[in-house]
Design a binder for these strands. Sequence first.
DNA 1: CGGTATCCCCTGAGATACTG
DNA 2: CAGTATCTCAGGGGATACCG
Lengths: 122, 122
Amino acid sequence: MDVTARPAAADCRAVSEILSRVGDKWTIQVVVALRLGALRFNGLKRQVGGISQQMLTRTLKTLERDGMIERTVHPSTPPQVEYRLTPLGHSLSETVRQLADWAAAHTENIWENRLRYDTDHP
Amino acid sequence: MDVTARPAAADCRAVSEILSRVGDKWTIQVVVALRLGALRFNGLKRQVGGISQQMLTRTLKTLERDGMIERTVHPSTPPQVEYRLTPLGHSLSETVRQLADWAAAHTENIWENRLRYDTDHP
DNA sequence: CGGTATCCCCTGAGATACTG
DNA sequence: CAGTATCTCAGGGGATACCG
């Protein structure tokens, strides 16, 4: 039996895990916002339009837990907290950019397909 | 094209749309199952372990609507329905494989990060 | 065999109010 | 400023039963 032909089920689950994380509503937008440099909480909130405080907190925590971003507290009044991508986070952002390129290249095509499908299937 | 620019918000939304579609629970597993060739409904159901009939139906319909797969009915008794990737679907599967490679390469690292984070944050 | 139609549950996500 | 704590709700996803 050739194990190299079809990806193992375990790999599939791992990929799904990553994708469902990356594919949630906010993760990518946060990562993209951080690609060009560190940002603070409210700066990030402004950059990622439409996100609620709570969802930003949750998304940041998850990303930090996975080692994608680093959280730095500068003790001062008012407190300053900086978020920046780790090397792992940067590498993710590069991979995501590939997918983004694919999406950008095919979005229009997909929309046409949907339109045609909806027209043909009343 | 200026690669250094920040992606437009519209692009971001398009990418998120694609990713949340691709990142759902079943889409990738279905696409991966079809990479090596066409399959029929129940063959697909066996290949993608744990999926319910309804979710398989929904996933296939969405993929068909987006033009990722093609559905062919062979009129016979019992009826035979074949699903296969379109060129667009194949191109998606290639892009996803990139992400899969990234995931495979970093999964262990991520798990270590989570473990450490959970240890450090009681 | 290849699906629909229902019902139900759980989680993702938002709104709001409060805190160090 | 940078969060935490609650409440709430829509919809993604599953189980089951039925249909051509």
